[in-house]
Structure formats: structure tokens, C-alpha cells
Design a protein around this nucleic acid. Structure first.
Lengths: 204, 204
DNA sequence: GTCTATAGCTGGATAGAC
DNA sequence: GTCTATCCAGCTATAGAC
């Protein structure tokens, strides 16, 4: 009996190899380089297997996105549960690969509706998780929510972090050192000196 | 005598129509939709003309980028020369179309070296222009450069602005209102109440 | 599950008529 | 300058052998 499309055990080795290959290609050469042939070649298998496992290229992109998104949510949850959640959030959001992939997906979402919907949904969950963990904490630090709403503190931290990373990808660093110093001075004023934390594993 | 490639008067109507078509396509459907055939169809001319005017698709992308970049530099220079340069910078950087195009070019630059180089170069000029116009102004406002270096003020304003716009494209607005309020409170504290300014024209 | 083969399409780029 | 015609490469997706 022929297996329905989009089958092949969710944890098959080949399936994982295809996802890894697609993610690497996307990061190194942009989403336009992610074709069934190139993904398959990089994974060391036949191109027809892409369609056996994912049905369409759209579904492949979605699977790559979801896997990475779930991993980032887990990693962020772990960070937010630490003793210094603000420092941990700042550290975890300062990840070049994730930021670059995120940009690719945003650009990809510009003309693939399924991706755009998934990215919007995930951004909401991501932000909600931060807010849920931090709004109490920030109040505990003595921040007046009418002057510094937790939503804004989180948003400003995130935007600075992402902007710095985007510029670094272009070897642009004007004002970076000083800005990092300002952010970290602020974090110290709320959460004290940064203490070492066990970094979580990277994706294989 | 056959004209050398990459010719055709720099201000030819057809050339401009091709640039406009390419820019619109890029904005509406992403860079992958920018093919010689589709650009030409949108401009109402034959696809071979793309190669007559630009030689390669790479050169077309570069021409679109440069035209938009020069326009943005001019527009920013005008804003920075106003009586309230910080307010003007904040307003001018809050332009959805430019931000979306910028993201497309960043993603495109991920796998087209010529674009990456041009984008990096342009970012530097853009930032240098801001810094040149504002470092004196900020000192005049009484900001201590050791606590708030102009580079950082500019960088933080820019990153917040861009992040908000990226999220708005996804109908995400958690904390936006509050963050805009914080920024504008800050701008008011330095530059007083925002006064109306003549907005510059949009590109045709 | 994995492969070969192939249909059907779209793309970049060029030659050459007008 | 603008067009038609064309080459060739690479793409998605499917059928069917093993």
C-alpha cells in the first residue's frame, strides 16, 4: 500500500537529514537556494524523497520553520526560568543564526502565505511567553508599569538585540559597543551583576 | 553600431519603467518574483530589454537598490536639517515601504555578493549622515556623551522604529502603543512638543 | 523507502530581424 | 531601441520499477 503523501515516520533519519539540509541552505544561500534537488543533494538522497516526505516545497519550508520555532520557544522558556531572566533573555536573543533565519522567513513569508501566517502566530506566542514570565518579575524589581510597561521593556530589548545582529552581519559596528554597555548597565541596575548560566545545547 | 550592454540613456523612460516594475514586484511578492519576464510584463515591454538596459539581473537589482538608497539619503538629509531633527528622524524612519524593501535587500544580499556589499556601504553612509547631523545637536540638548553617546541614541531610535514596523506587517502590536509613547516622551523632553513639518514627496 | 525517468514549466541570456 | 525566436539550465511534481 502506497503511503499517503507527507508520510514517512516523523522521526525518520532521512526526514531529519532533509530538514537539516534545507535549514543550512537557507542560512547560507537564502531561501531561493532551497530547491528539492539541492536539498536532496545536500542530504545525500534522491530528490523525489522530498516529495515523499513533505508533499510540496511549501510543506518543507513550514516543517523547517516549525521545528526551529519550537526549539526557540523551549530555549527561551528555559532562559526565562533562570534566576536572572532579563540577562538570560538578552543572551538568548543574541543569536546570529536564529536572527538570520528569522529574516529569511520574513522575506519568504512576503510571498508564501502559509509561512506568513505561521510566522505571525509564532511571534505572538514568543512574545506572550516573554510577557508571562517577565511582567511579574519587573514589578518585583520596582519598575512602575505606568512609566516602563513590561511590554515595552521587552520590545526595546528585543529590537536592539536584533538590530545589532543585523548590522554585524554587514561588519557594521558603529555605536555597538556603547549601546551594549548602556543595555547592560540597565540590566545590572535591575538584576545585579550577570552570573554565569549553563548554556543550552545547539540544534544538531 | 550596437550599443554596449548596460547602455540606454540613464534617464530613458523604458529604463525607469523597468526599475519601477522591479521595485514594485519586490515589495509585493518578494525578490524571488523579480524575473526578467515578469518585470518586463509589468513594465509593458519585451523581456529582452531588461538585458539591453542592465546586462544581467544582478545589475538590475543593484540599480533598484541604488536609486532607492540615494532617495532615502536625500530624504534623510532633508529631515536632519529641520528645526527638530530628532522628531524628523523618528518620522522619516517610520516608513513601511522602505523598511520592507530593506528587508528584502538584506535577504537578497544573503546570496548575492554585489548586493551585500552595496547594502553594507549604504548603511554606513546612512549612519554617518545621522551621526554628522546629530552629535552636535544632542550635545546642545545637554546630553552627556559619556552616558548617552549620540551613536547609541540614534541606534536605539532606529532599531525600535524598524522593529515596530516589522511586527506591524504581521498585525502584531503588543506593546507598540506604550513603546511609541515612551519614545515620544523622550523626544519631547529633548526637543519639545512636535511641530508640523512639510512632508517630502514620495517616489513616483 | 528509495530510486530512475520524464512531463511540463519558467528562468537567464543571446542572436538577429526590423 | 524594440521585438521574435531560441538555447539551455534548473525547477516542481508525478509515475512506476525495485
Amino acid at each position: 500500500m502506497a503511503p499517503a503523501r507527507r508520510n514517512g515516520a516523523h522521526d525518520s533519519e532521512t526526514r531529519t537529514a532533509l530538514l537539516d539540509a534545507a535549514e543550512h541552505l537557507m542560512l547560507e544561500e537564502g531561501y531561493a537556494a532551497v530547491t528539492s534537488r539541492r536539498v536532496a543533494a545536500k542530504a545525500g538522497v534522491n530528490a523525489a524523497l522530498v516529495y515523499y516526505y513533505f508533499g510540496t516545497m511549501d510543506e518543507l519550508f513550514l516543517a523547517v520553520f516549525r521545528r526551529r520555532a519550537e526549539w526557540m520557544l523551549d530555549r527561551q522558556a528555559e532562559a526565562l526560568a533562570s534566576e536572572q531572566p532579563l540577562w538570560a533573555l538578552w543572551d538568548v536573543s543574541h543569536d546570529q543564526a536564529n536572527t538570520a533565519l528569522n529574516l529569511e522567513f520574513i522575506a519568504l513569508g512576503n510571498h508564501r502565505k502559509a509561512i506568513r501566517v505561521a510566522a505571525a502566530d509564532y511571534s505572538r506566542r514568543f512574545r506572550a511567553q516573554q510577557l508571562g514570565a517577565l511582567s511579574g518579575v519587573l514589578k518585583g524589581y520596582g519598575l512602575d508599569p505606568d512609566v516602563w510597561p513590561p511590554e515595552s521593556v521587552i520590545l526595546i530589548l528585543s529590537s536592539i538585540s536584533r538590530f545589532l545582529l543585523m548590522e554585524e552581519a554587514y561588519d557594521l559596528d558603529m555605536g555597538h559597543e556603547q549601546t551594549v554597555a548602556i543595555v547592560e548597565r540597565y540590566l545590572r541596575s535591575l538584576e545585579g551583576e550577570r552570573r554565569p548560566r549553563t548554556p543550552s545545547d545547539d540544534v544538531p
